[in-house]
Simulated scan of single mutants.
Amino acid sequence: MLLKAASAISSLTTQGDNLRPLFSSGSCQGSQNSGVVRVSTRKNRPGIVVSASKGANDRPLTGVIFEPFEEVKKELSLVPTTLQVSLARQKFTGDCEAAINEQINVEYNVSYVYHALFAYFDRDNVALKGLAKFFKESSLEEREHAEKLMEYQNKRGGKVKLQSIVMPLSEFDHAEKGDALHAMELALSLEKLTNEKLLNLQSVAVRNNDVQLVDFVESQYLSEQVEAIKKIAEYVAQLRRVGKGHGVWHFDQMLLHEGEEVVA
């Protein structure tokens, strides 16, 4: 390509009166910075101007959006130097931290009530093993919910502060409803109350613009809570149909063998 251009220059420069060279200081513009090859003709006389250079990439960039070494200086100044302060904490308000600790207490209290229900139905003079199994599993599930919140609290750099737990009742027999229906209605009320507390935790996260906490509550708790409410509501409806008699034993057997594989 350059040989052809040189040949063209040679032929064109012989067509003038005084055969002046076209590579003058004015015709070779920006030879150190242009970084391009330009071919053009001069007005009123034939000719070709070729301008090429290296070093076009040496110019500094302009309009940089993200400068990590500059912006990280602010973050470095915020890194705690004392052992008592979390290093991981970032954009995690005290309101969110306190709300999580409150929810931990809610989960432990509900777990405690369910454990008391397990102990009641496991008595020899009550002997409803299916209900005992159901409430023991429910107690364990609520405890796991509390532990998951504790792990999340530590992950965000908060401090877990366990609070007092209220002593639950030990007797659950009801003169009109019987113990099974009364206990299941109590469980339904507790699940709804827990859901209300979770919604309050979610609203605290929204008010504090804590998107991560909102996602955690919605993905880990709210859907599961709705499912639990629906399931226990069906149990209440079934127990209201069977009354306090022999039907309670059949309902208890259903809970006892729930999840077991049926062998044909």
Rank of each mutant, 00 (worst) to 15 (best):
E107C: 06
V248K: 05
N209S: 13
L140M: 09
V39L: 14
F135D: 13
L78D: 13
I229Q: 04
E137H: 14
V263A: 05
S51E: 14
V113Q: 11
L199I: 06
L199K: 15
S34C: 05
Q220N: 15
N125C: 03
V160Q: 02
V110C: 09
L140F: 01
L190C: 01
S7I: 07
M1H: 10
L12E: 05
V248E: 07
A175W: 07
S86Y: 06
A237N: 13
E224D: 09
V248I: 14
R89A: 10
S138Y: 08
Q220A: 10
H246P: 01
V214K: 14
A264W: 09
F216Q: 14
V39S: 10
Q29D: 09
V72L: 06
A99F: 11
V217P: 01
E147R: 09
G247R: 03
E70H: 12
G178D: 10
L239K: 08
Q29S: 04
A205C: 06
G259V: 04
K197Q: 11
R156P: 00
S11H: 13
M254S: 05
N101D: 09
A187I: 04
V226Q: 02
N18I: 11
I229F: 01
Y221I: 02
G94V: 06
S51R: 12
S223L: 03
F23T: 09
L3P: 01
E75I: 12
V263N: 08
V113R: 07
L190F: 02
H257K: 09
G130V: 05
V39H: 07
F135Y: 15
G55W: 03
D252W: 04
Y221C: 00
I232S: 00
G247Q: 08
Y114R: 10
H257W: 02
R20T: 09
I9L: 08
L22Q: 08
G157P: 06
A8I: 11
D179T: 05
Q84T: 14
S164C: 02
S51T: 15
K155D: 08
N125D: 15
